[in-house]
């Protein structure tokens, strides 16, 4: 592998987490990783959901898995053997997990060792957390520098996200040994303005008032996402769609760019500028 850039890789670890299942963590992890890679950042996405591996399917590389994350942790394979290079983007890599083991196969030392090795080669390391707040989820967030908390605009998802924000502030390496915080932002997925207008879903303001962390982006409910998962394509690499564009905007903001969020089909154009302050 040739290193195109002269400077050392950034080595930033970002966890995609939520607490609740089915809110779109894996879809978001795949889309965010692909969007970062598309911008030329060398990115790897790791599946922490040991025993329920899905990321490889969303990424469309399930038939290329030979060795996995657990094999590397247990010393049965080298990291190089387990990393799968994406066929569409040469800056994107996948570290799949095992379908046959369970979360007990993850050890803190093992995860740290693999992440440290990845930090030497990659700009961004995206950790796709399993649902829940048990071992798998805790280890996925433990070494993170930043967190993206995926939330649906409904009460149980928001409450679980709040719980996860509490864990990010206390049960991470940064919190425990460095006394610094993991920077956490909310990614609101499955947003459906019609259902919000009908009073069936929480508004973005309500969600942000409860969670009290910055909003990274809003991803509309979209058939494009289901379609993309079924063909094993991250939504940002698939045909142009509102959801794909929303993920690209979210990633631009994740990289610290001052991008205004605007939603397609948004009925109240002034809304986002009200939330984030006007930007040119």
């Amino acid at each position: 592998m040739t290193q195109l850039k002269d400077k050392a890789p950034l080595g930033k670890v970002i966890v995609i987490t939520s607490g609740k299942g089915g809110v779109g963590k894996t879809t978001s992890a795949a889309a965010i990783a692909a969007a970062l890679a598309k911008r030329g950042h060398k990115t790897v996405v790791i599946d922490f959901d040991v025993g329920l591996r899905n990321l490889d399917m969303i990424m469309g590389c399930e038939r290329r898995v030979v060795f996995d994350f657990i094999n590397v942790i247990q010393g049965e394979a080298r990291l190089k053997q387990a990393l799968i290079r994406d066929k569409r983007l040469d800056t994107l890599w996948i570290l799949p997990t095992s379908q046959t083991r369970d979360k007990d196969a993850l050890t803190q030392e093992g995860v740290e060792k693999v992440l440290n090795e990845l930090k030497e080669q990659f700009d961004y390391i995206i950790c796709d957390s399993p649902a829940g707040i048990e071992r798998g989820a805790q280890l996925a967030m433990y070494f993170a520098d930043e967190a993206v908390v995926v939330t649906n605009p409904e009460v149980s998802s928001v409450r679980d996200s709040d719980r996860v924000l509490g864990l990010l502030a206390s049960k991470t390496k940064r919190a425990e040994s460095e006394g610094t915080e993991v920077k956490a932002q909310v990614l609101l997925t499955r947003h459906d303005q019609r259902r919000i207008d009908a009073g069936e879903m929480m508004t973005i303001e309500d969600v942000l008032e409860i969670l009290a962390v910055p909003l990274l982006g809003v991803i509309p409910e979209s058939p494009a996402i289901l379609r993309a998962s079924n063909v094993g394509m991250p939504v940002v690499l698939d045909e142009p769609s509102a959801a794909g564009r929303s993920y690209e905007t979210a990633v631009a903001r994740l990289l610290g760019e001052d991008v205004d969020m605007h939603m397609e089909g948004e009925k109240r154009p002034g809304f986002f500028s009200r939330l984030f302050g006007a930007s040119a």
Partner: peptide, 19 residues
Amino acid sequence: VRSGQMIVAERGDLTVIGS
């Protein structure tokens, strides 16, 4: 104070600047 957290002031008042 996030969901699932418990804050106890065993001997005095508790002030939370936040929700």
